[in-house]
Simulated assay, not measured.
Amino acid sequence: MDADFRDLLDKFTALGGIADNVYQRVGQYGRGVFPIDSSRMAKIMTPKNLFVNVDNLCLDGDHVVIKDGSCYTAKEIAFLELYWNNYSWGNGGNNDSFSFLKFIELLQEPIKKQLLANGFVDATLLSYRVDNDSLLKRFVSERCVKFEDQIVIAPVWEFVNHSSFAAPLRITPCGVETPPMEPSCEEILLKYSVENSPMSMWMKYGFACECIVAYSIPFNINIGDQALAIRCAGRFALDSKEKTSFSVDGDVLSIKLLPVGCLSNALPRENFKSILSSVGLSADVASSLFAKIREVNIQARRDLIDSLQESGFGEKDQLYKALMYEIELIENSPID
């Protein structure tokens, strides 16, 4: 094991962390975390004493520092700032954030408008200036978790790479930990976001990956003979307090998020049928509308790909791939 990495883990465990049976090496997803002994379980647990509220971080020159250290010991502050500046922010993390924001900034205005209109980015992202404050905000947003109603950033677990087909990070009263996995020699992976699609992962993390579901872009449909309007917000996820993905107010059916593609091929169609049945629309009407919604979604993504002109490389390639992953999911979900 790399001596610097071993030293970091020793400091981490001395402060209450767990880094059992793990080491770093390059794998399928780049540098990742693997079990040392394939016959034993591997585990990383970051304790809550090493959590820092995202608003309690700032830059001092090029270095990340804690604004208010009154809740931490001197050793905890020293470890956290060493970690961010030598292994995270200061080890390529800030460069990744810079590359993503610079790519967004330099996009042609028509592409920005397409991304915004389709709900693939929000206005805040398009308005970022590529300065240190924006870089730190982006860096933190890619790594934060919710813990006890606070948005916090925590060290070490972020070494673990993402897979949409892995279990999510476990939130416990003690802290956050990697999901349990049977002993093996395979890379330790976790799902960064429970509800994710290729485009939502691209927007939040800057990389493209295969996912389980693709969500619809915003749309408005007026059904004249039914005196009904269907409005889709085109969201990627529900808030934690929201219990349902749709609501009815008078003659308006509002859908917050709508799957239009899924590895479970029939799910998008059946979900849409179920929503429309709640307002008395037949399965035939739902199938007809879903076919149109599906085509609109495919075309919107193809139009963006045409605007990009080619896959390119780096950040452009990641956006191109995310769009292609979504088209594949949608095309593989039948309309009847």
Rank of each mutant, 00 (worst) to 15 (best):
G261N: 10
N222M: 08
I223F: 01
L267G: 06
C211T: 13
R231K: 09
D225G: 08
V213A: 06
S282L: 13
Y215D: 12
R269N: 05
N220W: 10
I275G: 03
Q226C: 12
G261L: 08
F219S: 07
E270G: 00
I221D: 10
A283C: 11
D249N: 06
K273R: 00
A283D: 15
I230M: 13
S254G: 01
A229E: 15
Y205N: 13
F207C: 02
L263M: 11
A208Y: 06
G250N: 04
S278R: 04
P218A: 07
S282T: 13
L238P: 03
N222V: 09
I275N: 03
F246G: 02
C262T: 05
D225M: 09
I275C: 03
C211V: 00
N196D: 14
D239S: 05
V194P: 02
E242K: 07
L228V: 08
A227F: 11
A214K: 04
D225H: 11
L267C: 03
N265M: 05
S200A: 08
F219C: 03
V252Y: 03
M201N: 10
S240T: 08
S274D: 14
R269A: 15
L281K: 01
G280W: 02
S282M: 09
I217P: 06
G206D: 09
G250Q: 06
G261C: 08
V194E: 12
C232F: 05
L228Q: 10
L276Y: 06
N271W: 09
V248D: 01
E195Q: 11
G280V: 05
V213T: 14
P259L: 14
P198G: 12
C211G: 02
V213E: 12
P218C: 09
W202T: 09
V279K: 01
C262K: 03
K241W: 14
K204E: 09
G280N: 13
K204D: 08
K256D: 12
L267A: 13
L238W: 07
S216I: 07
V248E: 04
E242V: 11
I223N: 02
